[in-house]
């Protein structure tokens, strides 16, 4: 468990930095084009905090939570008695729940049904494709192992 938490903390830090850099880039580009200042946070999220600075800090921390969740949840793939399908479903459910919850908090995605469903569907489709690719690779590797084992007997 310590190993997963360590990886989770690394992912937390990387996600925070990545989110911060992306925000800075967007803010800089849009500000320079429009000539006015912009902060990439929804008014509803800003309203939750006494100052925009604190909202900004929390925004970055939430990016870190997303990275932390994605990383720590990989422990489910080491539970060898749970099948690969169940592992993928658990991973998808937890990471999707955390991602969507944070997205809803940051950008009020729940107010826009089409983007909300689109985001969820997109993540589900990506996950399904990754599952199929990983499953086929696993089948192929198992086949190769069995050939090598039989050749050894």
């Amino acid at each position: 468990m310590r190993e997963y938490l360590k990886r989770g903390l690394i992912s937390f830090t990387i996600s925070m930095l990545a989110g911060l850099i992306v925000n800075l880039l967007i803010d800089s580009i849009v500000s320079s084009v429009s000539g006015t200042g912009i902060i990439t946070m929804s008014p509803e999220f800003l309203a939750l905090f006494p100052t925009p600075v604190i909202a900004g800090y929390v925004n970055v921390l939430l990016y870190g939570v997303i990275g932390f969740t994605f990383s720590v949840m990989t422990f489910v793939y080491d539970l060898e008695r749970i099948g690969f399908l169940m592992q993928s479903m658990i991973y998808f459910t937890v990471t999707a729940a955390v991602c969507l919850a944070i997205t809803m908090l940051l950008w009020q995605l729940q107010k826009y049904p089409a983007p909300f469903i689109g985001t969820l569907a997109g993540y589900a489709a990506t996950h399904a494709i990754m599952f199929v690719i990983a499953y086929k690779r696993l089948k192929r590797e198992i086949g190769e192992i069995n050939e090598l084992s039989m050749a050894d007997t």
Partner: peptide, 26 residues
């Protein structure tokens, strides 16, 4: 190692030459 099997649910079982069976993580 004798062989590996993957069930429909995706559990990967390893069978050893003496008949012992256990699970492999992906």
């Amino acid at each position: 190692i004798r062989k590996l099997d993957m069930s429909i649910s995706g559990t990967i079982r390893i069978r050893m030459k003496n008949g012992y069976e256990t699970y492999v993580s992906r």
